[in-house]
Design a protein around this nucleic acid. Sequence first.
DNA 1: CAGTGGTCTAGACCACACC
DNA 2: GTGTGGTCTAGACCACTGT
Lengths: 249, 249
Amino acid sequence: MTRGGLARAVAVDRSSPVPLYFQLAQALEAAIASGAIPARTRLDNEVALAGELGVSRPTLRRALEELAHKGLIVRRRGQGTHVVPTRVRRSLTTISLHDDLVRAGQRPATRVLSLDVVPAPDVVADRLGLVARAPVLRIERLRLAGGSPVAKLLNYLPDGLVEPDVARLETESLYQLYRAAGVVLHAAWQAVGARSATAEEARLLLEEPGAALLTVTRQTYDDRGRVVEYASHLYAASRYTVELGLLNG
Amino acid sequence: MTRGGLARAVAVDRSSPVPLYFQLAQALEAAIASGAIPARTRLDNEVALAGELGVSRPTLRRALEELAHKGLIVRRRGQGTHVVPTRVRRSLTTISLHDDLVRAGQRPATRVLSLDVVPAPDVVADRLGLVARAPVLRIERLRLAGGSPVAKLLNYLPDGLVEPDVARLETESLYQLYRAAGVVLHAAWQAVGARSATAEEARLLLEEPGAALLTVTRQTYDDRGRVVEYASHLYAASRYTVELGLLNG
DNA sequence: CAGTGGTCTAGACCACACC
DNA sequence: GTGTGGTCTAGACCACTGT
């Protein structure tokens, strides 16, 4: 994008409360995605580009850093900034947790199997940072896609964090409930493994006993660093895989 | 850390080629990890802190942004910057791919099962962005830990990217070879699933036929956006799980 | 209200890549 | 050399949070 035509495709609104660098990043990402800025294009240098777009260089740089972090562009000293040629680029932008079921065609549904306040088992109390047998909210759900069960979800939450509500649990994700309760999720640690299904699990997930299941164990933290969830999930591996984007591997 | 004593714990070397913000971030991270800056501490405000440390506010901010991104601190407008109280914090800093075997006690070893240049199978050519049946390097390895096999690793690489060398493959990781060849890995996409072991796989991994295996399929990109690897790995799930740190989930 | 982090600017110098 | 992105500065104004 050398001829300055970029300034028309990427217009910013200085009266908007949305930060300039964010507007720029989004506009540039859209322009790249739509092909308005073709792959392998070399962008103008930062000083010139900032001039064309009517922002300062640091502001432009912050936008470019975002795109570089997402893998959409590559910047190299002495050489310039290029739009990455890769075809399969979509998966890289975000790290998907597990709600990928919302994708193409799948009609996700949730059935609440149980919803109780119980004394925390030792391992749960330890992971949540609570004293032994402290009351915790235990949520057991069955996730269905296209009418058939794909996962059994077991979550433990500190008591009082969100309102237990079967109806909402069956229509919204747990993360939507967190957000509604003002909890800002920030980071998580998770381990992925596999094991064979027990008879009971096989029955729930409509698999053969002994079929391979994907296990995901996770701790989620909020922006204060408190553990807000301990989860132990079980996926029917024949119909489900976890997709992950990794950066700076 | 209010009393300015921080300036002694966090000293920067302005003659070093290492960027100031990076020195700051590392020093602060070390101070937090060691307890020199205790959990829940409220840091001085940014202007004051920058003054104490002898850097400008943007430079300090860049360091703090790094720490915030890693989940070590929390910054809130009107309220200040606090050190996060979480206990289990180590896993969050980086996203581990699969070489976690190097951890505590495990003596990792690798046996090269095969190493050939072959015409690319269709799926591989597609994933690597090559024409059908283009020559690719096919590497089949068995990973052992503590003397017993834990994973069968199958990798396809564009021909000519690295030198095929059995000896080095058995002592170093594939990623070390990439680095040595000047390839800068940048991003990856991977899918994690599970399935039951075939008789042949069970024999290799010393598992029962039908045992649950963890499958990892991955594409790795370099900093130019080229696909430099297509991998299909198989883990003995009874002895291995994949750990992942997730940010901004 | 006062204090905090969030954003933005204009300019400077440096390290590296290619000619 | 010349041109590029990488780093750093000093200062300004704003939006939000608590009192």
